[in-house]
């Protein structure tokens, strides 16, 4: 397992849509490094052939009927939107990223 470079921290922050000041990036990078150092211990556990657990208590998939259900009034959400255009949400324009 690897050490986190400042570039790694910036890359991860970008994936997470977080903008970090350089102080923050440095401090969080240090924290992450310490935590990753700690979790490194898992490497020593023999997990050969052990299936992963995603859900602690397995049971049959519940399925829903294909019946429309009346839910919330969308206006209750739109009314508290930071910006709207009619019944659409409005967000700043998307800039293409090369």
């Amino acid at each position: 397992m690897s050490k986190l470079s400042p570039e790694d921290v910036r890359h991860v922050a970008r994936l997470a849509a977080l903008r970090l000041s350089s102080d923050e990036a440095e401090a969080l990078g240090r924290d992450l490094h310490a935590i990753l150092d700690y979790v490194e211990q898992l490497a020593e556990v023999d997990t050969e052939g052990v299936p992963p657990t995603a859900h602690a208590i397995p049971f049959e998939t519940p399925l829903r009927q294909d019946t429309p259900v009346s839910s919330i009034d969308p206006e209750e959400v739109l009314a508290q939107a930071p910006a709207r255009a009619g019944t659409a949400f409005a967000v700043p324009k998307v800039l293409d990223e090369a």
Binding site: A83, A85, A88, F89, A90, V91, P92, K93, V94
Partner: peptide
């Protein structure tokens, strides 16, 4: 996402 060239914003219909 509706990108309207005329305005500086994107409208979202879900």
């Amino acid at each position: 996402s509706i990108h309207d060239g005329a305005v500086e914003e994107t409208h979202v219909d879900l």
